[in-house]
Design a binder for these strands. Structure first.
Length: 765
DNA sequence: GAGTTTGAAACT
DNA sequence: CAGTTTCAAACTC
């Protein structure tokens, strides 16, 4: 219904403009390039796909068309493949790729919203079919596009044809009411294009435009096509400025097209919406005047489902050169990227709110740049059911990873949830910008959070006691601070980068989401003092894991405490010793006296030796246990997450856990070990081993990202634990690494690599 | 559970 | 950087 009205308006307001539009179209039709179009059409007819389409019920060609559009738009957003090959030569491929993407991306939204489940191919086929039926339509469009095509991507004719077909779909009179609305919008956009700029870019552009419009279209349809179309301020408002004529004329034109060349009109609209000139509306309001008409669709879209920024992004994408490759551009274009991010965040935030408990968690590092994301973390962070104190990711050194992970998670959510195009687009952008976060990480986190919550809830008792239970659940990090307010490293929770939770027995605790600002500031302060303060205390190479696997040899030597211990009385045989607690042997960095560390003496004696001498069976048992764990880790990654992976998991203690863990298991924690527990108890190793293993898996990958410094240190061939300052009580950050041998390092890297996303992800600030 | 021991963290 | 103090976990009873 909207169409007619609009058309009327357009005609009334500007009958001449309409005429002009037609004239233009006609001229374009005359262009010799028409032939090209014809050829492609014939191809379609001949193609099996075409036949298939024909075979399909003609009942709802329109819907199919819509779906196709939406897909295009969607693909536009995501299109990795497209990114890879910007060249026109691959147009055909790009098309297919797009389809794929669409299918993937759009499924949720479109299928549900439009009810249009026709595959893109079908849509395309339908379009082709329409074309065959209405060949005249093709000419105009194609001619226009070709003539004006500045970019001259050399886009394949087929692609052009496809785009045309798509556009036709839009126009298709058979469209449902909902679609009609979308069509109108398109018309409006067309106005802009025709009126203001006849030189429609090449077919490629059209195609792109189509995509863009498709996005809008989809959003409109999904939300409320009617409302959007008519309600959109753009139509009446700014867009009408200088271009109003064009709009009106366009409208008229559209109308006429509907009558005469319905399909063509749709195409034009698409093309218009996306002219290259159109940058983001948001950024360039001034354009509204010029592009207002074209933009309308986008604006509407924006108002509808996404932020204006989103729309602006879309516009920008579309506008810039080939839309197909727009995504690439986005990445390059900071402004746009930023906008998207904003959008993304906003969107994410909105969604999150749904889930949000109200507890706030923040990530420090990312805070500034990714503030929004951080806020989003809330969702991700497992809030204890019923407990505000749920752990949140704190900004520690490696926090950015967390944030990223979170972010990624958010994105996922967005994708799956509701976001239509915008959401998807955003995701893409974010991913590209951030270097893609590993999904694994996200999953692990999420699961981890849950685990935490459960865990914490499960045992309100002291942490010590808690750990006893499952051992594995690692109730780690339940503090008992009384004077530090849980804002110093004395507090294990804080040190671990997690918020205190119920189980904690702390007093006057400020390490809670409520005091996020305080926590963050404190963290920063501490980090300023010691950048590695929140880094994992125990640096471990993958080797150790492997070694453990062997059963026999196993020297944890590969892992070392970054700072080393300073034990005087414990002989490094009690948990007072951080090295021992971490399940690693003492190293040069240690200043301990009378070291008897079962995992490796300061003098270089390693575990293996110790085992023989002192430890004996116990150690092997421990190793085995840890080994098992490690082995399972990959598979269990998720399970691991169950561990107290509080938001800050990346925090040092968590990382430490791998081997030692601060998850201090209660003495009795031996349980975890299982059968071997009895023997292992002696040194308490069992706990360590198992726990370490678990944590290790999880954290190892992150280590590098989190702590590049460490990596470097570990990376240092000398590995020497001591490379740093042997004498200094506290090892300087760079030196932190405990001595990992070069070989170890390599193996470690392998592990890291296994986690695909991390390397690239590390967004470094 | 209270008290002691211990060593890291923080402070000077 | 070294020494001292503070702190909370680890440990003992």
């Amino acid at each position: 219904m909207g169409e007619e009205e609009r058309v009327k308006l357009g005609r009334e307001s500007e009958g001449e403009s309409e005429i002009t539009a037609r004239v233009v179209v006609v001229a374009s039709m005359d262009t010799p390039k028409r032939n090209q179009i014809n050829t492609p059409i014939s191809k379609f007819e001949d193609s099996p796909v075409f036949n298939y389409i024909n075979s399909l019920s003609p009942i709802q060609p329109v819907k199919s068309m819509h779906s196709s559009q939406s897909f295009n738009s969607l693909s536009f957003a995501s299109l990795p493949s497209v990114f890879t090959s910007p060249h026109v030569s691959s147009l055909k491929e790009s098309r297919f790729l797009r389809r794929h993407q669409f299918s993937d991306m759009s499924k949720p939204d479109f299928s549900s919203e439009n009810g249009n489940k026709v595959g893109r191919d079908e849509g395309v086929m339908d379009v082709a079919h329409d074309l065959t039926q209405h060949p005249e339509n093709f000419d105009p469009r194609g001619s226009v596009g070709d003539a004006s095509n500045e970019r001259s991507y050399e886009s394949s004719k087929l692609e052009i044809e496809l785009s045309r077909t798509l556009s036709y779909d839009y126009v298709n009179p058979d469209c449902d009411p909902s679609t009609s609305c979308g069509i109108e919008n398109k018309c409006a956009s067309e106005k802009g294009s025709f009126g203001s700029e006849m030189h429609i870019e090449g077919i490629s552009q059209i195609d792109q435009n189509r995509e863009a419009t498709g996005c809008d279209w989809e959003s409109l349809i999904s939300d409320a096509a009617d409302l959007l179309i008519f309600d959109s301020p753009n139509e009446t408002g700014p867009s009408k400025g200088s271009n109003q004529k064009s709009l009106d004329s366009v409208t008229g034109f559209c109308t006429s097209l509907n009558n005469d060349l319905p399909k063509t009109q749709a195409i034009g609209a698409v093309g218009l919406s996306e002219q290259p000139e159109t940058e983001n509306i948001c950024t360039q309001p001034g354009e509204a005047g010029d592009l207002g008409d074209r933009v309308e669709n986008l604006d509407m879209f924006a108002s509808t489902s996404l932020d204006n920024c989103m729309a602006g992004d879309l516009h920008g994408k579309m506008g810039d050169e080939v839309r197909i490759y727009s995504s690439v551009r986005i990445a390059s274009n900071l402004q746009r990227g930023t906008r998207r991010r904003c959008l993304v965040f906003e969107m994410a935030g909105a969604r999150r709110k749904r889930f949000d408990d109200g507890s706030s968690c923040g990530s420090s590092v990312l805070q500034q740049s990714h503030r929004d994301v951080a806020s989003n973390d809330k969702h991700i962070v497992p809030l204890k059911p019923g407990n505000d104190s749920s752990r949140c990711i704190l900004p520690g050194i490696g926090l950015h990873l967390n944030a990223l992970a979170t972010t990624s998670t958010d994105y996922k959510v967005i994708k799956h949830d509701d976001l239509g195009l915008g959401g998807q687009l955003i995701e893409r952008d974010m991913v590209s910008a951030e270097n893609e976060i590993s999904v694994v990480e996200d999953a692990s986190q999420a699961s981890g959070y849950v685990g935490n919550e459960e865990y914490s809830q499960s045992s309100p008792k002291k942490k010590r006691r808690r750990s006893e239970n499952g051992g594995e659940s690692e109730a780690c990090k339940r503090c008992n601070c009384k004077k530090s307010k849980c804002l110093k490293l004395y507090c294990e929770c804080f040190a671990a980068g997690v918020y205190c939770v119920e189980p904690c027995s702390c007093q006057e605790c400020f390490n809670k989401p409520i005091h996020e600002d305080t926590v963050l500031s404190t963290r920063k302060q501490i980090e300023s003092r010691n950048p590695l303060a929140f880094a994992p205390k125990v640096i471990r190479s993958s080797d150790s894991v492997l070694e453990i696997g062997d059963d026999s040899s196993k020297t944890p030597a590969s892992a070392r405490h970054k700072r080393g211990c300073n034990c005087k009385k414990s002989g490094c045989l009690k948990k007072y010793c951080e090295c021992y607690q971490g399940g690693v042997g003492c190293s040069i960095n240690c200043r301990c006296e009378g070291c008897k560390n079962a995992f490796g003496r300061k003098d270089g004696t390693e575990l293996a030796e110790l085992e023989e001498e002192e430890i004996g069976d116990e150690r092997s048992l421990v190793d085995r246990a840890s080994q098992k764990t490690l082995i399972h880790n990959d598979a269990d990654h998720n399970a691991d997450s169950i561990l107290p992976a509080t938001p800050l998991r990346f925090g040092r203690s968590l990382i430490q856990l791998p081997f030692s863990s601060k998850c201090k298991a209660p003495r009795s924690s031996v349980l975890a070990i299982g059968s071997s527990s009895n023997t292992s108890q002696k040194f308490g190793k069992p706990d360590v081993g198992q726990r370490q293993a678990k944590f290790e898996k999880r954290f190892e990958p992150t280590k590098e990202d989190e702590m590049p410094e460490f990596l470097q240190g570990s990376g240092s061939p000398t590995s020497g634990i001591k490379s740093g300052s042997p004498n200094s009580k506290r090892v300087s950050p760079p030196h932190c690494n405990a001595g990992t041998s070069p070989g170890q390092r390599s193996s470690r890297k392998l592990i890291l690599q296994s986690i695909p996303s991390f390397p690239s992800l590390t967004p470094k600030h």
